[in-house]
Design a protein around this nucleic acid. Sequence first.
DNA 1: TGTACTGTGTACTATACAGTACACATGTTA
DNA 2: TAACATGTGTACTGTATAGTACACAGTACA
Lengths: 116, 116
Amino acid sequence: MLFGNYIRERREKRKKSDPRYSLRQVASRIGVEPAYLSKVERGDVAPPSEAKIIALATELDEDPDVLLALAGKVSSELQDVIRQRPELFAQLIRELKELPDHAILRVVREIRDGDW
Amino acid sequence: MLFGNYIRERREKRKKSDPRYSLRQVASRIGVEPAYLSKVERGDVAPPSEAKIIALATELDEDPDVLLALAGKVSSELQDVIRQRPELFAQLIRELKELPDHAILRVVREIRDGDW
DNA sequence: TGTACTGTGTACTATACAGTACACATGTTA
DNA sequence: TAACATGTGTACTGTATAGTACACAGTACA
């Protein structure tokens, strides 16, 4: 799924029941020109900046990390965490790379519940 | 520690015992102009691209992830891993953010040794 | 003492990024 | 049917990124 298609789909869905989700109004609320959002939704230009993507996520009630991923980006907040301890996190992420979702979820839960 | 200072320090150290580590020769081996590497080492310009930083890491036998971190970057390879499963990794990284090094290392080891 | 190598200052450049501004045709509604 | 709202095409812009090219002064050494 491409970023633009996904956004358009989500926005149009909301528009059905709420006219406040017209392209123009959403564009205005996230602070871009309508022509630009139009091009973004049609994949005519690259996805917007991280800040605009997060605004869009809030607006459409989507997970910002997922939208950023669709846009080929990783949240700068997460990048900052990694940059604080690059060896540790690099090792961890490479270790987890091949594991199935449920294994990673198990790690997340163990950390949340355990006495780390 | 700034990226440029660090690189210069490491390079000069090697240069003491091996004249192949002059600024010019290293620049040539990693494929940039000497004037540029000079500016990079003095922090006169921003750190180079990911590819050049990795070449530099290889050249100076440093950890690429550490050099990238000093340059304010995160390896695109790690970013790709995160982008494959954004929710999962975002959750995990935020969870680990506050934990001390030894706790994260424990996770890494458990994954490596265990039956995940 | 001249040749070769060292690091550096100045000027320039090509490409990507992240949009704006305005005009236009079509559609809706009061 | 006038006023307003909708999405989109075209043209343009400022800033950042990632460097190159060339000249120059100082140092080493043969």
